[in-house]
Computed example of a mutant assay.
Amino acid sequence: MPTLAAIYRYPVKSTAAEALGTARVQQEGLAHDRRFMVVKPNGAFVTARRYPVLQTITARFDGNRLTLVHDDQVAVAESVAQFERQRFETGVWADDFAAWTTTLRLDAWVSRIIGEPVHLLWLGEQSPRFRDTLGVRVSFADGYPLLLTSEASLADLNARTDGTHVMAQFRPNVVVSNTEAFAEDGWTRIRIGEVVFRVDAPCSRCVMITVDPACGERRDDGEPMRTLLGYRKGTDNQVYFGQNLVAENEGEIRIGQTVEVLD
């Protein structure tokens, strides 16, 4: 049976993954997942596509306190109670909405790593970003609340390339084992623990997958995008790897649970 092999969340958009044993699934995605985002002074969002060094930041957030760690900086931590909470206009792709400022200390800390002035925004207790096309609120994620990948699909990719790629390059929330390669492409609804998920659409990939998460630098050889272009390109010329999920209810999931394919 397909099994939940790993759970990851990213408290700050584009930073390193936090591995979990259990997680609470909410409408916006995993609890505390992508509830913070780096933006430029004009509100434009900043990601590891252009600033791959973001992936070398480790973030932890428990709902009350955010901690940021980086090898080149003294760790910084601030509580939600310390946030300035000034309304700040921003957006993700075509979605425009307002988030909240955190602290000047956090802004300065991230700015030193990025190498230019930026702000670190907080989504708030509840996301103000409602996506009509999905019928749910979404975090600072690119477009969907959650992303699923499978170990077999990654193994299939690695069998076709000279190098070895890791799951962190694809930034999933849930990873499934005990399947055939790309079996997830044929799923439309699944259940993990207490939660039923709609498998809404395949995930189109970008230059982000060429970033080595261990060092925060983009690979010179263009892999694994070059290999995926050879066998995972759709009729729209987009490269697909993984499936976007929308939770139909809230609940808890944990590693080792069966992934039941409903449809």
Rank of each mutant, 00 (worst) to 15 (best):
T67G: 04
R189P: 09
D200Y: 05
A168K: 07
L157D: 01
R112A: 10
V211S: 00
D95N: 09
A181H: 05
I255F: 07
P213Q: 02
A48R: 10
L68T: 05
F45R: 08
L134P: 01
M1N: 10
I192A: 04
G143N: 01
A183K: 06
T103K: 01
M37W: 00
T235P: 12
Q86R: 11
L106M: 09
T210G: 00
D142V: 00
F182K: 05
A168N: 09
I253H: 03
R65I: 08
E125V: 11
Q243W: 07
M37D: 04
L148G: 00
D156V: 05
G135W: 01
K13T: 12
C203N: 02
R198A: 15
V176F: 04
D62W: 04
E151F: 03
F130V: 07
T227H: 00
F88W: 15
I57S: 06
I253M: 07
Q55P: 01
P52Y: 05
D200A: 15
A181R: 06
V207L: 11
A152Q: 05
E84G: 04
V259M: 00
D33Q: 09
I57L: 11
D236N: 15
V259L: 01
R49K: 15
F88D: 11
D62I: 04
F36C: 05
D156Q: 13
N249T: 09
V259Q: 00
R226T: 06
T101D: 06
V136T: 13
A19E: 15
A59T: 04
E116H: 13
V175N: 07
V207K: 06
F83W: 09
C206R: 01
R65F: 07
L4S: 08
H70E: 08
L229E: 10
E252C: 07
E78N: 14
E78W: 06
T164D: 08
A183Y: 03
G21W: 07
Q82K: 14
G124K: 09
E223G: 01
D96M: 14
K13S: 13
A75E: 13
A141D: 00
T103L: 03
S127V: 08
F140I: 05
G222Y: 02
W100M: 12
A155Q: 15
F140R: 01
K40P: 06
V174Q: 08
L147F: 02
